[in-house]
Amino acid sequence: MNAPRTPVSAPTWWDEFTTAGSSPNTAAARLHQGNILYIENVTVSFDGFRALNELTLYIETGELRCIIGPNGAGKSTMMDVITGKTRPDRGQAWFGSQLNLLKMSEPEIAEAGIGRKFQKPTVFEHLPVFTNLELAMRAPKGVWRSLVARLSGEARDRIEEILVLVGLAEQRDMRAGALSHGQKQWLEIGMLLMQEPQLLLIDEPVAGMTHQETERTAELLVALAGQRSVVVVEHDMEFVRSIAKRVTVLHEGSVLAEGSMAQVQDDPRVRQVYLGA
């Protein structure tokens, strides 16, 4: 209930996306310099099976981190813990040094500045693409505010801008359910951008995308890092290689290896469990 809100400063609030490395925004300044996410000794069990096992992971502010690992390694479960969907049996999860994620609800975590793209693209199928973005926009989300909310010209411009960025300008009035799989992925990324999160958690963004779409996604994510912190879960090694500076390998719910792509690829344990050599 008492998650700190960053006031939306009206005239230039969208600058952050268009001008790379713009002035530090208030939320980022509030957060502890250094790490934006602390996960320590987190354990999640489903009927005795440990999906996460004493997982410890730190994400630096402004970092772009790739998380890889075989199916069932616990990557999505980790995102569930960070976003409040799943409560761990044990462990700690902090957003910056102030916010205890384990004590916050999903909307509070979203409001505090963590945005998430699901593994299976999840958009509002019966609403137009434009409205999907409108609803995701960083704005008061209460019932009474929604009753009287009017879309300002600036907000409209901002939505148009994101529509162009994610390549859906022509589909703006189309029902989101009618988009292709790859377009839905992009729409969801667009919704994430509308939220203006400090930390983006992106689960398998390029599944179902064409080669070109994948390349554009890589460019976008690389451009976003720096101003924001980005955590990407992906299977596509080509894609990971093209964007990641730092890679974390998850295996059976814990970190198996961490380092540059070259380092983890040379790690014999990683080769054994994941790269299959």
Partner: peptide
Amino acid sequence: VAVRDAENRARFIGYRV
């Protein structure tokens, strides 16, 4: 309608569903 279509998505966007 968003809640009807994808309740969890609405939550993670910040709506108290």
